[in-house]
């Protein structure tokens, strides 16, 4: 298959996925339990009288029948309007739009840090002949993967932020503010990158051309950089898209702790306020980000390793 055809096919799959995700979002909008008008009126702690409630429902257009609401919703989404938040009364597109970049920043920084750490350590482990290194790093990986990220975050805040005062505890704006949340988020993806790198490198090491290189007396690092890494790169690159999705999911907990003004903090509020337009918008946007990431990953994988095309779904 030509690269163009492959590209088109993947793009088509990505588009279909998006359509399905948006349909799911609409179902979400209408399946919610709890009266959003009431919750909005009660957010200040006062209970509204029945009159006020009725009036507010009317004002929000919540009184029209579901199919009517449905058509309106679809119309709006097609025009790039994700609807209006019930709690905040602001357009969902604005609420989430101003929060996409902080979340993306966190996600991309984490992706970079965890991939770098995972690949470097993974190569070290794979090449290491001392059983101690292998055992130590791999046990650390097992434990790290078992740590809830919020526990890591709390530890980092206390140790690095409060005790040592090296970096700000919380907030947004400067590169220093990125350090703690990225560290807390990186542990789990770094651990799985490490595992993946290790097994990819090990399987390449077992192949004939490496043995040939070794028998020629090349230095280990030359073998690693020239011969092993390029061959081991394909599965690593292929996993980036998925990993990015996992990182985005992880931001939900981390943003709350570090007062990071990303989408997650908005969606948590939305969930407890049954603010379904915001929830749906969040799923739609995050889904899109992940789909785009997967698409790009597939593309790069295809460029790096043409064999993928043959085995592609």
């Amino acid at each position: 298959m030509s690269i163009l055809g492959y590209l088109l096919r993947r793009a088509l799959v990505a588009l279909t996925t998006l359509v399905v995700v948006s349909v799911v979002c609409f179902l979400l909008v209408n399946a919610a339990r709890g009266d959003p008008a009431l919750i909005a009126l009660e957010q200040s702690g006062e209970t509204p009288t029945p009159d006020l409630l009725a009036e507010y429902r009317w004002q929000l257009g919540l009184n029209s029948p579901l199919p009517v609401q449905y058509v309106r919703w679809i119309e709006r989404v097609v025009h790039g309007d994700l609807g209006r938040s019930i709690l905040q009364r602001r357009p969902v597109a604005t609420i989430l739009g101003e929060r996409v970049w902080p979340t993306l920043q966190l996600g991309l920084a984490t992706l970079a840090v965890s991939t770098l750490a995972g690949v470097v350590l993974g190569v070290v482990v794979a090449f290491s002949r001392a059983p101690f290194v292998d055992v130590a790093i791999r046990s650390a990986v097992v434990v790290a993967a078992a740590f809830p990220s919020f526990l890591v975050a709390i530890g980092l805040i206390m140790l690095i932020g409060e005790r040592l005062r090296l970096v700000p505890v919380a907030g947004y704006g400067s590169p220093q503010h990125l350090i703690l949340p990225v560290l807390a988020l990186s542990i789990v993806p770094a651990a799985s990158t490490l595992r993946l790198t290790r097994s990819a490198v090990r399987s390449v090491l077992a192949e004939d051309f490496v043995r040939t290189a070794r028998s020629k007396g090349l230095a280990e690092w030359t073998i690693a950089v020239r011969h092993v890494l390029p061959s081991a790169a394909a599965p690593l690159i292929a996993s980036v898209g998925v990993r990015f999705g996992q990182i985005l999911a992880g931001t939900v907990v981390i943003e709350t702790i570090f007062a990071w003004p990303g989408m997650a903090t908005a969606v948590i509020t939305a969930i407890s306020g049954r603010d379904v337009p915001v929830i749906a918008g969040y799923v739609l946007i995050t889904g899109t980000l992940v789909i785009v990431a997967n698409f790009l990953t597939d593309l790069v994988t295809r460029l790096v390793d043409p064999r993928v095309a043959a085995g592609a779904r």
């Binding site: 791999r138 650390a140 078992a146 097994s199 990993r243």
Partner: peptide, 23 residues
């Protein structure tokens, strides 16, 4: 989604739990 083969010995369990405790 990725799920890679890995084998671990008993020693690592202990090492792991110790790290967990300290953390």
């Amino acid at each position: 989604m990725a799920y890679e083969p890995n084998r671990i010995s008993r020693r690592m369990v202990l090492a792991g739990l110790a790290v967990g405790g300290v953390g």
